[in-house]
């Protein structure tokens, strides 16, 4: 690990001010950042420890929404009564991720900013990774790419965003409230993470000096009919091969509105507006879900080892909607 300076600010403003010319990083649960520092992938010269800032609350918002503090742990968030009542799919998604020990440490803000698990990014022994060393190429495109993206890739990068939680947040249309040196702003979840394009080194539209304060969930009609389904190589403690967060607003067997986001398939949690639009007004049936699933995967471009993800994603979508319609039992 490269030597670094350590700060523990008293409040959000002080934390943000700590981000100066030096290569500074916020430290929350540390479950991703510390690993990457040990791997010599992240080389911050200053760590700003935000873990004790007062950003761990989960509070109701006017109008029925919920505010998830950036420093609330994944475990506390998934276990919170209001989260389970209003956004059961989010609780399911969080619990489908990592392990109990990790979820006890991991924070909501950190979860959004966790970095890809692409092997070639994670191990600096590989020379070619545009995300780690801009301009160096992408070893994954011709390499072992079973876990890589099939949607929204670029010739510079085919990494996926590994989070489960974020897939549910994307489907729920969350907003990310952040504070920078110049004040607060709100980022729509769909605009938070980026596609790789020619600058895969930039994961999100968050600026380096910006601190996530909270993730705000709007009130919604989806609590009764939602589900998160994750397909993985082992029953726990494995990242998704593919996952789907699906939610339905039903009116007597007819879909009034639908939400769908996918994990494990793209550089960002992949919300499918197209599939959602196709479901509106259709009967809540297997057939509708299949049509939506095909629509969601249109344009998918697999690589040598991940062609299976296309069919797997479709099956996962169909299962997620079926479970959602049936009342959202866990898969």
């Amino acid at each position: 690990m490269q030597p670094f300076e350590y700060q523990r600010p008293q409040n959000a403003q002080e934390a943000v001010n700590g981000v100066d010319a030096a290569h500074a990083k916020f430290l929350a649960g540390g479950t991703n950042l510390i690993d990457l520092m040990k791997q010599q992938v992240e080389l911050p010269t200053r760590l700003i420890d935000i873990k004790r800032l007062e950003l761990a609350k989960i509070e109701e918002m006017p109008g029925g929404g919920l505010r998830l503090g950036a420093l609330a742990t994944n475990a506390d968030t998934a276990g919170h009564t209001l989260v389970r009542q209003r956004y059961p799919m989010l609780a399911q998604a969080i619990l489908a991720g990592a392990s109990p020990q990790l979820r006890n440490m991991a924070t909501n803000g950190g979860n959004l900013l966790q970095r890809t698990r692409c092997y070639y990014f994670y191990d600096p022994a590989y020379e070619h990774c545009n995300k780690r060393k801009p301009g160096s190429g992408c070893a994954a495109i011709e390499g072992f790419n079973r876990i890589h993206a099939i949607l929204g890739t670029s010739t510079a990068c085919i990494a996926t965003h590994p989070s489960d939680m974020c897939v549910a947040l994307a489907a729920l249309g969350a907003r990310v409230r952040v504070q920078g040196k110049g004040g607060e702003r709100v980022i729509e979840f769909a605009d938070f993470h980026r596609l790789p394009g020619r600058t895969p080194e930039i994961d999100t539209n968050l600026r380096a000096d910006e601190l996530i304060l909270s993730i705000d969930l709007p009130a919604g009609p989806y609590a009764a009919h939602s589900a998160y389904v994750k397909v993985r190589d082992r029953a726990s403690y494995a990242f998704a091969l593919v996952s789907a967060a699906a939610a339905l607003e039903l009116d007597n067997g007819t879909i009034r509105s639908a939400r769908l986001a996918l994990g494990g398939v793209a550089h960002k949690p992949w919300r499918s507006d197209r599939a959602e639009a196709m479901l509106a007004g259709k009967p809540a049936s297997q057939q509708s879900y299949v049509v939506a699933a095909n629509a969601a995967l249109e344009g998918a471009k697999p690589f040598e080892h991940n062609a299976f993800k296309v069919e797997m994603a479709k099956a996962t979508i169909v299962r997620a909607f079926s479970l959602a319609a049936a009342g959202g039992d866990k898969a």
Binding site: Y119, Y120, Y122, D123, Y126, E142, G143, F144, Y237
Partner: peptide
């Protein structure tokens, strides 16, 4: 899993 270009094991940790 082995990377065919370098002969390095790509999933060389207990997460992967």
């Amino acid at each position: 899993h082995i990377d065919n270009a370098s002969g390095r094991i790509v999933n060389n940790n207990l997460a992967e």
